[in-house]
């Protein structure tokens, strides 16, 4: 017998900055985007191809991480199968290309539609569960997608599928140009950032944020959070699907490994590493994750011996992720949230 059926929201600590700077101008994301825009010029001085390809990859994962942050950071919906959307986007490109449809004008809508449908279907089932069960059921759906991809023997099965070339853009081969591709990815990143930023600040976003903190209260004012959470899940899945389209183009390759549960785990890690519920935290987290991996692996093949403990230390000593550290350095409490 549990005599305390009554809902309470006392567990969540009062965070003054849970309204993420709607009024205050956020400089950090602007600085980030300016730096990213200037980078290609700096890259010309060094190994340009390598630099552009690395940072393009970072931005693609940042896009995926932003999509996850939308539901994870703002909605407390811990999707442990988000990499499935990367794969769906990627396979949409790969499979269509294999049948001769190479134009992004077709591939992108198909990828978005497929990711959206998958999100709608799995979200509708997953959102019936709460907490840990939600984590696990999204994991299950991710695994289903993973094994489904493996079974696609016509499209490479286990080994994946190599693209003959990057997607065409209305018949033109512009994406083959690394600088153009970099610019396109950056533009999409900024676009999706602005989109998600607007969403979390909107009426819709307020419902999602409220349901994160106190679902019972939401129902007691007349909201049924399910529909809103499902819509957010679909939006998030579609953005991540878009990231999958870009990833396939960047690597000119798709494989089931895109959807492995470790990938989903990495996406979660990126978001937490950067700092939850800020969107640009997700960008910083993705960058930190991938760049650290790149740099460390340049020094030693056993870089994971450093990287693993680094993650543990971040959890133990740097609450709020890298943004949390930044905020503390600047002496502002909670500036990162």
């Amino acid at each position: 017998m549990k005599p305390l059926p009554e809902p309470s929201a006392t567990a969540a600590p009062p965070l003054p900055a849970s309204r993420p700077g709607f009024v205050r101008r956020e400089w950090l994301p602007i600085i980030l985007f300016v730096l990213l825009a200037l980078l290609p010029f700096a890259a010309m001085l060094g190994p340009e191809k390598y630099t552009l390809s690395l940072v393009t990859r970072v931005m693609i994962f940042a896009l995926a991480a932003i999509s996850l942050d939308l539901i994870l950071g703002y909605g407390a919906l811990v999707s442990f199968g988000h990499a499935a959307f990367l794969g769906i986007g990627g396979y949409a490109v790969g499979i269509l290309a294999a049948h001769g449809f190479q134009d992004a004008a077709l591939q992108v809508p198909v990828a978005l539609l497929a990711s959206g449908l998958f999100a709608l279907l799995t979200g509708a089932i997953s959102l019936r569960t709460k907490g840990v069960y939600f984590i696990m059921i999204t994991l299950a759906f991710g695994q289903m997608a993973f094994f489904f991809a493996i079974s696609l023997s016509a499209y490479g099965g286990d080994d994946g599928l190599t693209l003959a070339s990057r997607s065409k853009l209305f018949g033109l081969s512009w994406l083959e140009n690394d600088r153009f591709f970099y610019g396109l990815v950056l533009a999409l990143l900024i676009g999706c950032y602005a989109l998600t930023r607007a969403i979390v600040a909107s009426r819709f976003g307020r419902v999602i944020r409220g349901a994160k903190e106190n679902p019972v209260r939401m129902e007691a004012v007349g909201f049924s959070p399910f529909r809103y959470q499902l819509a957010a899940y679909v939006i998030s899945g579609m953005i991540c699907g878009l990231a999958g389209v870009l990833l396939a183009n960047q690597a000119e390759f798709v494989a089931p490994a895109y959807m492995a549960w470790q990938r989903s785990g990495e996406l979660i890690v990126m978001v937490i590493l950067g700092g939850l519920a800020s969107l640009h935290g997700a960008i910083i987290g993705a960058a930190a994750f991938l760049l650290l991996e790149e740099i460390l692996s340049g020094y030693t093949e056993h870089w994971k011996l450093i990287f693993g403990p680094f993650l543990v230390l971040v959890v133990l000593f740097a609450r709020g992720g890298l943004l949390g550290i930044l905020a503390r350095v600047r002496g502002k409490s909670g500036g990162g949230r």
């Binding site: 929201a9 849970s18 903190e213 007349g222």
Partner: peptide
């Protein structure tokens, strides 16, 4: 609630971050 029936809670239930 949408039909016009509202309630308050014995144990305060608000959205603390708002």
């Amino acid at each position: 609630v949408r039909k016009g029936l509202a309630r308050s809670f014995q144990i305060t239930s608000i959205i603390p971050g708002f």
